[in-house]
Design a protein around this nucleic acid. Structure first.
Lengths: 150, 150
DNA sequence: TTTGACAATGAATACCGTTCGCAATAAAGT
DNA sequence: ACTTTATTGCGAACGGTATTCATTGTCAAA
């Protein structure tokens, strides 16, 4: 199996950040890394419970917060009142459904090349740029249309 | 005073949406329209209390939700676990501080002209585009620097 | 202008997401 | 292995948001 390399890089990653690598942190980080659906803390908690019996919700929140602080993951920008996380730290863009609040990744080299407007870079230190397309996903369009018929 | 025109437009706006215009809705909407700091529901509640004695927090949440539904205001995309609102429905962009989560508006005709990538427009109905610059605001850079010295 | 249908408000309460304090536990370096 | 130090788990607390229901207010028709 080629998974040992991943394990190694996980340990190196944490060591480089100066944070102890616990089982909880490893599994939560690996789980988030394998997903691309920008889960909430609770969704992570659910899908990790079988691998971490007795895991506390509190720990999930604390681990995610610590990973954000360390720069290993990010909290994404989205409408709505629940924090969502993303382990993809490469530049990418987002498609946001205003109805169901789903967030879908979008890769585009054209958009990646966006220049930072002058005037901004003076006081503000830009670390990343992402383009948000907001609107209605296919499912929600359908729901809306059928609702209009009724 | 030229404020009567605004009052008129407010009434027309609500009528066009088919929603009764109450004092609460008018004042909450006007308050949000005059601000550009993307306040939370509670911040709106605070700054409107003197004009609306006996106002309930519940009403603020309901009014903001109704205004979003009607398309008169929008819930902005941001990191963090509290909903923030914006009455500026013109296309504009956002500068987000990852530390203090402040959101600043950015106007740029270059960015406004962004093309929607093909492939997206098939299933997803794009209603708006906005560019997010994420990083550290001047204040938070300062705090971080002084923290590093200690 | 009054009236009536209907929708919005306020108060209390319940709910969900998140954070805190503290005792028990586990990781990393010696 | 041992010690230091940080992390975990639990329970409770907290803040933001949604819900229920009686009361009040809006709008338009009479």
């Amino acid at each position: 199996m080629g998974s040992e390399r991943h394990v190694d890089s996980c340990e190196e990653l944490f060591r480089a950040c100066g944070m102890p690598l616990t089982i909880q942190r490893r599994i939560i980080f690996e789980e988030l890394s394998q997903r691309s659906d920008h889960p909430t803390a609770d969704q992570i908690f659910q899908s990790v419970q079988d691998r971490l019996p007795g895991l506390s919700r509190t720990t999930v929140y604390r681990v995610l917060e610590a990973l954000v602080e360390a720069g290993l993951i990010q909290r994404i920008c989205h409408p709505g009142a629940t924090a969502r996380y993303d382990a993809n730290m490469n530049r990418h863009h987002h498609v946001v459904c205003l109805k169901c609040q789903r967030v879908i990744d979008l890769h585009s080299s054209e958009l990646d090349a966006l220049a930072v407007p002058k005037g901004l870079d003076g006081s503000f230190r830009v670390l990343d740029v992402s383009v948000h397309f907001r609107g209605l996903c296919a499912e929600c369009q359908e729901k809306q249309d059928t609702a209009n018929l009724a």
